[in-house]
Computed example of a mutant assay.
Amino acid sequence: MLSLTVKRMRRSRHRAVATFDDADELFVLPRPLRRAVRFLVSLGSGRISIPAHTGTVSAVAFLAATGFYGMSLGGHTQTVAQATTTAVGFAIEDVKVSGNDQTSEIEILQLLGLDGTTSLVALDVDAARKKIATLPWVENVEVRKVYPRTVEVKLRERQAYAIWQHGSELSLIEKNGSVIAPLRDNKFAALPLFVGRDAETAAASVVDEFAQWPDIRSRIKAFVRIAGRRWDVYLDNGIVVKLPEDNVQQAMAQLSKMNRQNDLLQRDIAAVDLRLEDRTTIELTPDAAIRRQAAVDNRTKALTKAGQST
């Protein structure tokens, strides 16, 4: 880089003229170097004082930065942070779970992965929430840190509406037909049973159809879906009510009327067929059919004997 020499110029009303004169010339540094040179000169002359222990602090900071960089490259940052915060009193000692009825607290603790030395500071609540949300009964979950040593887990669980039998499997379902979990015990035995393909998705609509017929609804044990179009309803005494594909309300009104007038559903019958609008067909049980046939035969004999005697 070239250095320029300029002559000191006298102030006048006329225009200043720069000349290259060996006498009375000054050396001018390039602009980027001037500040650095001034700092070095001031440092050397003692006009700038350096605080005590600056070198020590700088060395420690450099080593710490190097250590953190090495931990980051090796993937040990989380481990070191957890060990450090646990040592100073942030180890998780209490987990408070609320809103759980069907979800076990043990399942939640296992998903949190607590081992007695887990640090509250290092706990990833978003990851914990996502893990707990995978449990079958959990509809919504909130995980919160309560310093210094507590984790709060608040659940909202799904509600079992009915039991769905598909093949040989039994599952608990919500009102919208979503499967919650397999049925494992008799805790939900009082729930209505829906059987067949697509029965789970149509469950809520058919139950609503029986809302205004509580005397019959209370006796229903199972709804069986037939060909994905209509329902057979099984009562608690074994009678099967065959409903039509359409006009279920009309069919139920007819059934309720017959039951009030003749105690139809208390009789020894096997089925009530309501599929045809203009007629109702009653199917007897085998024993009732035998008794009825015997009664018919006796009546025929009696009529025959009476005819012969006359």
Rank of each mutant, 00 (worst) to 15 (best):
Q102A: 14
N100L: 04
G70H: 02
A61S: 08
Q78E: 15
V95E: 12
A65G: 12
A61R: 00
L63S: 01
L111Y: 09
I92W: 06
V97Q: 04
L112W: 07
F68C: 12
L114Y: 03
L73I: 05
D101T: 12
F68M: 14
A61E: 01
G116F: 10
A122M: 10
A122E: 13
V80K: 09
G99Y: 09
G99V: 09
Y69I: 06
K96M: 12
I106H: 02
Q110V: 11
L109M: 09
T117G: 13
F68S: 08
T117Q: 15
M71F: 13
L73F: 00
G70T: 04
V121N: 09
I92N: 05
A122I: 01
F90M: 10
G70Y: 02
M71Q: 06
V121F: 12
A64W: 00
F68Q: 04
L112C: 10
M71S: 09
S119R: 03
V88N: 09
T86H: 13
F90S: 05
S104I: 05
E105M: 01
G75L: 04
G113M: 14
G116S: 11
G116I: 10
Q78A: 15
L73E: 02
A91H: 06
V80T: 07
G70C: 07
D101H: 13
E105P: 03
F68H: 08
T86R: 15
Q102E: 15
V60E: 06
Y69N: 07
T84C: 11
L111T: 02
F68G: 13
V121Q: 12
T66W: 03
G75P: 02
E107R: 02
A87K: 14
Q102S: 15
I92C: 07
G75S: 05
T77H: 13
T86E: 14
N100Y: 03
F62G: 03
L111G: 08
L112Q: 08
T117R: 15
G113H: 13
A83E: 08
L120G: 04
L63G: 02
I92E: 08
T103V: 14
A65W: 07
H76S: 10
S119K: 02
G75T: 03
L63K: 01
D115W: 01
D115L: 01
D101P: 01
H76W: 05
T117D: 14
